[in-house]
């Protein structure tokens, strides 16, 4: 295989791992603390992409407005996530898993139809990729934007690690994920804690959407494809483990990128085979707890 192909696939694998990580860490956080599967997570990703598209459309397609979208859109999706948690999702905590899926599926359809209504069926694009220029490494040329995405995800990962391990909020989140009843008996207001967890996770999903839009555009299908892949990452990495999500995202990004190269017609097979392998050998995921 040509060196250039491998190099290109490697970088694009890392870039797609970035989106997977941003999605999966939020999913994993919500599941670990609130104990619900946030199936609608992909919808926040899609909303992030469409909102970024709107911001750049309405103002101007320039680097400046893109940065503005990168700042504002995650805040908007976080706010929406918090709102939905308060009015809808919190009523389903502790319910049967199948019952929990109902509002999630409803949300997926509502957000999807809402997007169709507002943005239409044709994909929207934010052509800022060219504005970032290119970078040459070892005679290979990459869009410089890829490295912006990688850098941004590293900053987010470090920030997430800091928040979860070092701050009071992070300690309370971990306590709640280990023993909810006891953390309530220690005086922790879980209602508020859960809302903030939702806001953070949906904010990250929105951020992933904004970062993805210059590369893949905004389309109505992106909600489901992303959430399915993100679930695979969470399962492989271990529910509730941010480090696990990160490593699994990289692993799956690589498997995806090189699987397509070797046997393109079996694109998804490799990923699910990997998931099956992990589940057989480590049923709790690579970094999952009992």
């Amino acid at each position: 295989m040509a060196f250039s192909v491998i190099g290109l696939q490697l970088v694009s694998a890392l870039v797609s791992a970035t989106f997977l990580f941003l999605m999966a860490s939020g999913l994993s956080l919500i599941f670990g603390v609130c104990r619900v599967l946030n199936l609608a997570h992909g919808s926040f990703f899609m909303l992030g992409a469409f909102l970024a598209y709107s911001v750049t459309q309405v103002v101007a397609t320039s680097l400046g407005t893109f940065w503005l979208a990168l700042l504002l859109v995650p805040l908007a999706t976080a706010l929406l996530g918090a709102l939905l948690e308060i009015v809808l999702i919190r009523r389903f905590y502790g319910a049967n898993l199948l019952v929990q899926l109902m509002p999630m599926v409803a949300l997926i359809y509502i957000i999807s139809d809402f997007s169709r209504f507002v943005w239409g069926v044709s994909p929207g694009s934010v052509p800022v990729l060219g504005l970032f220029g290119t970078v040459s490494i070892l005679e290979l040329t990459f869009p410089a934007y890829y490295f912006v995405v990688l850098l941004a995800s590293m900053v987010v990962a470090a920030g997430l690690w800091f928040v979860i391990t070092k701050t009071r909020w992070g300690i309370l989140v971990r306590a709640a994920s280990q023993d909810r009843e006891m953390s309530a008996a220690c005086g922790v207001n879980q209602t508020r804690l859960f809302t903030t967890v939702y806001a953070l996770a949906t904010g990250l999903a929105g951020l992933a959407g904004v970062l993805a839009v210059p590369i893949s555009g905004a389309s109505l299908e992106m909600d489901m494809t992303t959430v399915v892949n993100a679930f695979v990452v969470v399962v492989v990495g271990g529910m509730g483990s941010v480090l696990g999500s990160m490593l699994a995202a990289i692993l799956i990004g690589l498997v995806n990128a090189f699987g397509i190269l070797i046997l393109p017609q079996f694109e998804m097979t490799f990923v699910y085979a990997l998931m099956a392998l992990v589940l057989i050998t480590r049923p709790t995921g690579l970094f999952g707890r009992e």
Binding site: R168, I171, R174, A175, Q178, S183, C186, G187, R289
Partner: peptide, 13 residues
């Protein structure tokens, strides 16, 4: 809280 340190357990309380 099994995976929290002593100081972190106290922080929760």
């Amino acid at each position: 809280f099994p995976d929290l340190t002593v100081m972190e357990n106290l922080e929760v309380g």
